[in-house]
Amino acid sequence: MRDTSSSKFAAAAGLGITLGAAFLIMLLMILIMSETPGKTIYFFFAGPWANTYYLGNMLNAAVPLMLTGLGISFAFRASMFNLGGEGQVYIGGLAAASLALALPGLPGILGIPLALAAAVGAGAVIAGLSGLFKYKWRTDELISTFLISNALIYIVDNIITGVLQDPESNLLVTRKIAVQYWFTRIMRPSNLDISIFFVILLAVIAYFYLYKTHQGYEMRMCGLDPEFARYGGVNVRTYFLLPLLISGGLHGLAGAVSFMGTQHMLFKGFSGGMGWNGIAVALIARNNPLAVIPAALFFAYIEAGAKSAMINADVTIEIAAVVQAVVFYLITAQALYSWIDRKHRRRSA
């Protein structure tokens, strides 16, 4: 994708059309399916802004999406696919929770970094496995990441509802982690916690890594043109493994961050959707780590709006999935961008 000013305009306009089409289809669905469409639409759009509670929760939901979006951006930048985000988030959360539950006496200053490291490690190992298969035998990572992740989801389900299950709860949840592991809340009464600042900082670091370091340059080169990179003396196979390790690590971290400030325990299926949404976030952000931040906020907004519409009106939250699907359909449509580009050129010529 060339970055001339004209194609930048096309990119922005294309994004606008994509998101506009997604919202139009959602409005249409609400008009057909809701008995009180006006009320539903109101709660969808205005609900997330209603008060600090809803607003804070929306921001809080964006935090893990920033991490998964970053994770996918790394993979995509190197032209690697990671369709195993769901499982990597899930196992990351499990690793952090297991560590916190096993060491309840640890002071927070030691415990939190350890729990986060466990999450990063678990996610990295799982995604790294697919990277390793690709590195050694060229096993297609698109399918292997997905399959490994799906197998893992059932196994983590079993651990959450088995070994770690809270015996005093009727829900499928683990026991709560000790208080010193909890992230500090910053926008009461909402669940928003300080992790949002660290994650934004991480996005900035990711940007510098990708654009200002030698390794980041090589990774992007392998993504753009592996033959050219090989010719330039880059060990291309390294970049089968490294991007997936980073990608998995960030997904694992998302799993930890998503519960250590919010519920303080895991519940069955807590990672649902974070992996897929991470792909959408990365696509909207065009794999730019800084653009991942607003893209994640946008997705958190759609989810929060759908949730608000479900609670206050009569539609189900899965309308968000339909909106997301429309975004997925159109976001890479080259014909759309070149059409805009042509129109734009003709006008400015």
Binding site: M29, W276, I279, V315, E318, I319, A321, A325, V327
Partner: peptide
């Protein structure tokens, strides 16, 4: 992926 997401969302909706 979009088709898979849409299938899951649409059938539920």
């Amino acid at each position: 992926l979009a088709a898979n997401l849409l299938a899951g969302g649409l059938t539920t909706v």
